[in-house]
Design a protein around this nucleic acid. Structure first.
Length: 316
DNA sequence: GATAGTGCGCGGCATAAGAC
DNA sequence: GTCTTATGCCGCGCACTATC
């Protein structure tokens, strides 16, 4: 289970926050401060280890690696999740962990208290196959493609322990956050319709988030994980998710949508400016659910990611 | 120099096109 | 009509070229 609180003091030193709320739309701009604490990666590493722990144990078991410190598996260290993954995959994971971190640390639209009992990284199906192959043939390094479905899922618990609200997120990392990069991300890539030659955008975060199911697949995955990892501690939550997941007459759970964009600011970017308008809900967003957008603007984010993932379980 | 836009890799599946 | 082959798509980004 994920049981590590966000390193609040380190986050306060690292980032300056500019939150706004307009109706059902919350926008949070987080800018990295000018001077980065040399110990920042060390301060963040325990949270990242906690976020990846379930998947690490799960994948190790699946592919047949013993994680016990005394195990005679020294050679396996290079194959262990998540350190063994290609750089691009780690960047993607970074964005997803950051989504959890900011959700637990900052106040979002609606002032709900969010928690992430466990991250869903074990359901990153392609990673399991990648690790299985890599453990048996080290030449099998390749690109790993993304987790299917939403990147991130958090819950808000009522006094009785039932899930009273969901937060479902898309987390995106891009090394440089140019306007065109954001448009491609949010509005979709340019495509050419064969029949007419017409050029149009296809996909994109807004499209995906607007059409997502009221109760996404990740909810089922979370329920299964809670049942496996902490059935007693989350008994009421598991039952409440059950009621939302039944096919006939499901009991809906209110939901907040989350979009997290992480990367370095473009060269021409001015401080305290947002990539996605904060004044009003973006026109492309048509879902009736509350929307929270978070922009995390870094300065040398790629190096930080490498440093953090280089530190995970380094003591073992 | 900065930004915009294109091409590519990766595995598996669905669909389209072509051959018989 | 059936089978085989070719193409496109998916999601994650990087690397590269073109343009301003």
């Amino acid at each position: 289970m994920h049981d590590c609180d966000p390193p609040s003091k380190a986050l306060d030193r690292w980032l300056t926050s500019y939150p706004t709320v307009k109706g059902t739309y919350g926008h949070l701009l987080l800018e990295e401060n000018d001077v980065r604490d040399p110990n920042l990666a060390s301060a963040l590493a325990p949270y990242f280890e906690s976020a990846h722990r379930d998947a690490r144990e799960h994948f190790a078991e699946q592919i047949g690696i013993d994680l016990h410190p005394d195990a005679d598996e020294d050679d396996d260290a290079a194959m262990l999740y998540p350190g063994c993954l290609p750089t691009t995959a780690k960047r993607g994971l970074f964005g997803e962990v950051i989504a959890g971190l900011v959700t637990e640390q900052y106040e979002f639209i609606g002032n709900h208290k969010w928690s992430i009992p466990v991250f869903l990284f074990r359901y990153h199906a392609d990673v399991e196959k990648y690790l299985f192959d890599l453990a048996r043939d080290e030449t099998r390094a390749r690109t790993v493609f993304g987790r299917f479905g939403s990147d991130f899922l958090g819950i808000s618990l009522g006094d009785d322990g039932a899930v009273v609200r969901l937060i479902v997120g898309e987390a995106k990392w891009r090394e440089t956050l140019n306007p065109s990069t954001i448009d491609n991300l949010m509005l979709g890539e340019w495509k050419v319709r064969r029949s007419t030659g017409e050029r149009l955008r296809k996909g994109g975060v807004w499209f995906e988030i607007n059409r997502d199911l009221p109760v996404p697949h990740g909810v089922r995955q979370l329920q299964r994980l809670l049942s496996e990892r902490d059935r007693d501690g989350h008994a009421t939550a598991i039952v409440s998710l059950d009621r939302a997941l039944v096919l006939r007459n499901p009991v809906p759970i209110p939901r907040t949508n989350l979009v997290v964009i992480v990367g370095d600011g473009a060269a021409a970017r001015e401080a305290r400016t947002a990539l996605i308008g904060w004044e009003e809900t973006p026109a492309e967003y048509t879902s009736p659910n509350d929307l929270q957008v978070v922009e995390l603007i870094l300065n040398g984010g790629a190096a930080l990611i490498d440093e953090i993932y280089g530190l995970l379980w380094a003591e073992d």
